[in-house]
């Protein structure tokens, strides 16, 4: 299955690269080397796999929602999940925030949140809201995350070329500058 996906993605990438190259022509663009460009460093960032309870947080990038009983769970995009009690629906109250890096989805069953921590499916026991506990993890169960990462991950400096992250190589945990870089088609603002 992974191979099929990879093939589809690769073909699609090639198609888009092709379209983008009308100004330069195919061949020239593919051989285009940048004298200096940023290159992603792939790896595993364990700090991004730490899940913990926190006090209620402000809602900044409000994400998807799920409700069960008198509680509403709302994703704070890529950061975690707000837990809100609405027993008094005129005065809903934030009870806690569960920090879950890379989170975008939320479902709940029997005091267990099922969500994504980056591209892993995780089970988080919230019987004690102050001590959310990771009780299960299925690695790489939600590979969609990687696609989002390739959009989000970019070097900090503005107006620089960089090699567009390859979603299948893993997480981008940093950037290095290299000389004579091929394939640095991406550019920061």
């Amino acid at each position: 299955m992974r191979l099929q996906l990879y093939t589809v993605v690769t073909l699609a990438l090639m198609a888009v690269l092709g379209f983008s190259c009308f100004d330069n022509g195919w061949g020239r663009r593919y051989q285009d080397k940048k004298p200096s460009a940023f290159v992603p460093i792939y790896g595993i960032d364990s700090s991004l796999r730490t899940i913990a309870s926190a006090s209620p947080q402000p809602t900044v990038a409000a994400g998807k929602i799920y409700t069960l009983g008198n509680r509403l769970y709302q994703v704070e995009n890529s950061k975690g999940i707000h837990i809100i009690d609405y027993q008094d629906v005129n005065h809903p109250v934030k009870l806690a925030f569960i920090s879950i890096p890379g989170c975008s989805e939320v479902t709940v069953r029997n005091n267990v949140i099922l969500t994504n921590n980056l591209n892993d499916l995780v089970s988080i026991d919230i019987s004690d809201l102050n001590k959310a506990k990771l009780i299960g993890r299925v690695p790489k169960a939600f590979n969609r995350y990687f696609f989002e990462q390739t959009v989000v991950a970019r070097p900090a400096p503005s107006n620089v070329y960089y090699v567009c992250p390859d979603p299948w190589q893993g997480e981008v945990i940093g950037w290095k500058v290299e000389k004579n870089v091929e394939g640095a088609y991406c550019k920061t603002n």
């Binding site: 888009v16 983008s20 390739t150 959009v151 567009c164 088609y185 991406c186 550019k187």
Partner: peptide, 9 residues
């Protein structure tokens, strides 16, 4: 400022 593969993605 187009990000080519990013755009596709």
């Amino acid at each position: 400022k187009i990000i080519l593969p990013g755009r596709l993605l």
